[in-house]
Simulated scan of single mutants.
Amino acid sequence: MDRAKANGVYRGRKPSIDLAAVRSLRNEGIGPSEIAKRLGIGRASVYRVLRG
């Protein structure tokens, strides 16, 4: 894997959470539980996005 990363081949898994969507819904005043339901992700993931 180290060799592949050095050659730019190995990049890891693509993000499964749309960060912009989470932030957009939060700016509309929607709570983390409802955001998680709408996007089909875990509530902890929503908190992680909002914290970072």
Results as ranks from 00 to 15, higher is better:
residue 1 M to C: 09
residue 2 D to G: 15
residue 2 D to I: 11
residue 2 D to Y: 12
residue 3 R to P: 05
residue 3 R to W: 05
residue 4 A to L: 15
residue 5 K to H: 10
residue 5 K to R: 15
residue 5 K to Y: 09
residue 6 A to H: 01
residue 6 A to E: 00
residue 6 A to S: 04
residue 6 A to T: 03
residue 6 A to W: 01
residue 7 N to D: 08
residue 8 G to C: 09
residue 9 V to S: 07
residue 9 V to G: 00
residue 11 R to P: 10
residue 12 G to Q: 09
residue 12 G to A: 07
residue 12 G to K: 06
residue 13 R to G: 12
residue 13 R to F: 11
residue 13 R to N: 14
residue 13 R to Y: 14
residue 14 K to A: 15
residue 14 K to V: 15
residue 14 K to Q: 15
residue 14 K to C: 14
residue 14 K to G: 14
residue 14 K to D: 15
residue 15 P to R: 11
residue 15 P to I: 08
residue 15 P to E: 12
residue 16 S to Y: 12
residue 16 S to K: 15
residue 17 I to C: 00
residue 17 I to W: 03
residue 18 D to G: 02
residue 18 D to L: 03
residue 19 L to A: 09
residue 20 A to K: 09
residue 21 A to W: 00
residue 22 V to R: 00
residue 22 V to L: 02
residue 23 R to W: 07
residue 23 R to L: 10
residue 23 R to P: 08
residue 24 S to L: 11
residue 24 S to P: 00
residue 24 S to Q: 11
residue 24 S to N: 11
residue 25 L to G: 06
residue 25 L to Q: 02
residue 25 L to S: 02
residue 26 R to F: 07
residue 27 N to I: 05
residue 30 I to G: 04
residue 30 I to V: 11
residue 32 P to Y: 11
residue 33 S to H: 09
residue 33 S to T: 12
residue 33 S to K: 14
residue 34 E to C: 07
residue 35 I to D: 06
residue 35 I to Y: 04
residue 35 I to K: 07
residue 37 K to S: 14
residue 38 R to W: 01
residue 38 R to K: 07
residue 40 G to Q: 05
residue 41 I to V: 10
residue 41 I to F: 01
residue 44 A to N: 13
residue 44 A to F: 10
residue 45 S to K: 05
residue 46 V to I: 04
residue 46 V to Y: 06
residue 47 Y to E: 04
residue 49 V to Y: 02
residue 50 L to I: 13
residue 52 G to S: 05
residue 52 G to Y: 04
